[in-house]
Amino acid sequence: MSTTDLVDDPRRAVRAARWAEFKRFARRFLRNPLGVVGLVIVILLLFVAAFAPWLATHDPYLPNLAARLSAPSAEFWLGADELGRDIYSRLVHGSRLTLLIVALVIVTSAPVGLIVGAVSGTVGGWVDVVFMRITDVFLAVPKLLLALAFVAALGPGIVNAALAITLTAWPPYARLARAEALVVRNSDYVNAVRLAGASEFRIIVFHVIPMCLSSVIVRMTFDMAGIILTAAGLGFIGLGAQPPLPEWGAMISTGRKFIFDQWWIATVPGAAIFIVSLGFNLLGDALRDLLDPHLRQRN
């Protein structure tokens, strides 16, 4: 990019600076092999979910009673379940449900927690007291119990399960964002914009929240594993996705009856949950090493 471009198009220059910053970040990330493994697993999951209809070999809902409980073979790569449905195809389609729940929960809980925490920490005073006591109330109730009660009240289903998990997932974000905001609100760079006459709204949105983002992102990647497990748990006890949806938790639940003779029916979705959770955790670990303000020296 030539010098005249920079002057003519400052927006592009800022973008170029951010891009250079991102490339530096990516280079440091690639130095962590475990993190790369995690990233590959997560990308694989996204890929499978995106192309599920093309990757699946069978209709995930079509029963084939002749093939009931058949073992892994050339026809049924990972075997077939108690209705003769191909487990591989159900697994592939199930990845969409898993991602859907994770995305729903993250999209609803992280911003809510981030905003509550950032406002609470920046404004302080009675706003802080009120917001944090509400957060404490939600934190005091056991996670799975609150989710169970909520689903029981609203009725089972994927969206309700996601809502129930959200209800219990946002308070840690609020705590985290508040802790960061408390540090940032008295920092000189925030004071400098305050002295320039910036409103509290502008300070929170443009100056405090960007500083909270990195720890929230780290927490988010760790949370994704937990969300997958909770969603599978709700599916397992029949309060999450309903049959015939190929949700991984529900698949384990039906396979449980055959675990001694047809082990693959429960094992395969279990292994899928394990691998995906591990992937998110490895990714989260690597991101924390790079982003955690407490592990990083000041720059």
Partner: peptide, 16 residues
């Protein structure tokens, strides 16, 4: 306006 003591903490690390 004011200029702060420590130039390492008076600029926002996320903005050019």
């Amino acid at each position: 306006q004011m200029v702060f003591q420590d130039p390492y903490s008076s600029l926002h690390p996320r903005y050019v």
